[in-house]
């Protein structure tokens, strides 16, 4: 889970920096910036936040978008040029290169309260959150390593970090934490 309430997915550094500055003025914390679409296990951990994404990357996350409304995720497209984007019911708003700072500010302001009421995440990384979800769902270290394409040693290392950060050791305790923080049903 991210410490902030917003995620930016865009390959251009200038776009990443510019949007981060505008979002900060709206008191929206950018928790993570990706140049490419993150892995499925990470996307599945998202809840209650704003996702700003390069419109050319939407197809890569489309299969997850059906649950975005239920998970209180606002999806905002960042278009590559000023040609109109075809209607896409998944997008809550679209930003264009010619938008002024004021226009971007006005477009983003309605979403600025997203994620403000969620519980503090104690700053688990995306990978740790993905591991926590699988541990809480009952998967073994070996199964987790296969699902996330990482070594068992790395899984154990993530689990140690999770325990230190949360102060919770047992699987039942981790499951309780995951339920209370909407990581699993």
């Amino acid at each position: 889970m991210h410490s902030g309430n917003c995620i930016i997915i865009h390959p251009w550094s200038l776009v990443q920096i510019g949007l981060t500055n505008i979002l900060q003025s709206l008191k929206v914390d950018v928790g993570a910036v990706y140049s490419f679409s993150p892995e499925n296990e990470i996307i599945q951990t998202w809840n209650d936040l704003i996702v700003l994404i390069d419109t050319t990357k939407i197809e890569m996350i489309r299969k997850h978008c059906k649950s975005f409304k239920r998970r209180n995720i606002a999806l905002i497209g960042i278009h590559v040029d000023d040609s109109p984007v075809p209607d896409d019911p998944l997008l809550d708003e679209i930003l264009y290169p010619s938008d002024t700072q004021g226009m971007i500010f006005n477009k983003l302001r309605p979403f600025s309260n997203f994620g403000k009421n969620k519980q503090p995440s104690l700053h688990l990384s995306d990978r740790e959150t993905a591991v926590l979800k699988l541990v809480a769902t009952g998967f073994s270290n070996k199964q987790i390593s296969e699902k996330l394409f990482i070594s068992i040693h790395t899984v154990i290392s993530h689990r140690k970090h999770i325990t230190v950060k949360l102060g919770v050791k047992s699987i039942s305790g981790l499951t309780l934490y995951a339920v209370l923080n909407d990581l699993i049903e």
Binding site: P120, L166, G167, V168, G173, L176, L180
Partner: peptide, 9 residues
Amino acid sequence: DLIMIILQH
């Protein structure tokens, strides 16, 4: 663990 989780929530 239960004590820790209650404290956090």
